[in-house]
Write a protein that binds this DNA or RNA. Structure first.
Lengths: 134, 134
DNA sequence: CTTGACCTTCCAGCCGGGGGAAACCCTATG
DNA sequence: CATAGGGTTTCCCCCGGCTGGAAGGTCAAG
């Protein structure tokens, strides 16, 4: 399996697959011509990483999850800890974005959006009354 | 006003203020010793950008908003368009994160988190049944 | 033989900064 | 006057997670 075929099989761009290799996630064999040769297990790992990335895990998380996946002596507690931490991080990011969203929604609703210059959005961003007239 | 004072006044790190200058957002004067000298209007712009960043606007957006702020001939429609677009982007990011959150929450809830290796989280990430035993 | 598709490596850039080196400036103190 | 300390300057590299492009090697088809 060449990198192009692995890319087609996983839906990942070939560039990304090479990047994952540089990051030590998946190390294919090499053919006599220097081309990368992906075993089924390599492709499985790539697909694993692709799914983990789709859930927002960092590449560091992916490395750890991949190691746990291939580790017969793992405990589900280790896996759960990583996932729970990531879940917290996601919740924090959502909360932060929702804060921005609430403020912005207010401002956008209050803005006339016509051809006059008065704008509550700019008023809210402006630290003090007079904008620099320059 | 030196950069350190401007930093204290705006809450922005001095490094960030220099970066904003490199990005063309705020251009201070220079004293005879080569030090940056921030006018009140510069500090106001920095504070403006700080608030816009806190609402998640990109630096490109900040540049545009800053230009509109100092433009007497602006229309609130222009401002609203930028803000509304950003609002859409925020909503999209929230939706994406919430999708991850829902899936992950499911998986985390289903994972025993004990010392056994069976784990629905890994099962969900694994593309096919057998993990590479290597 | 040539063409085109694929593969290889390397280098650079995106965003929004952060870390740190080496050098300069200013003030205060001994 | 020397020096110690704090601030400031420029410079370049680093982060994550890729993405684009250049320059060259390989392979199968026409």
């Amino acid at each position: 399996m060449t990198i192009g075929e692995a890319a087609a099989a996983t839906g990942l761009p070939a560039k990304t697959i090479r990047y994952y290799e540089a990051e030590g996630l998946v190390t294919p064999l090499r053919g006599p011509n220097g081309y990368r040769r992906y075993r089924d297990s390599d492709v499985a790992k790539l697909a694993f990483v692709a799914r983990a990335r789709a859930l927002g895990f960092t590449l560091d998380d992916c490395r750890a999850l991949l190691a746990l996946w291939t580790d017969r002596g793992r405990t589900s507690a280790e896996v759960k800890r990583i996932a729970a931490q990531h879940l917290d991080a996601i919740a924090a990011r959502i909360a932060s974005l929702q804060g921005m969203q609430a403020q912005l929604r207010h401002l956008v609703a209050a803005c006339a959006g016509d051809d006059r210059p008065d704008c509550p959005i700019l008023d809210s961003l402006a630290p003090c009354e007079p904008p620099p007239a320059r």
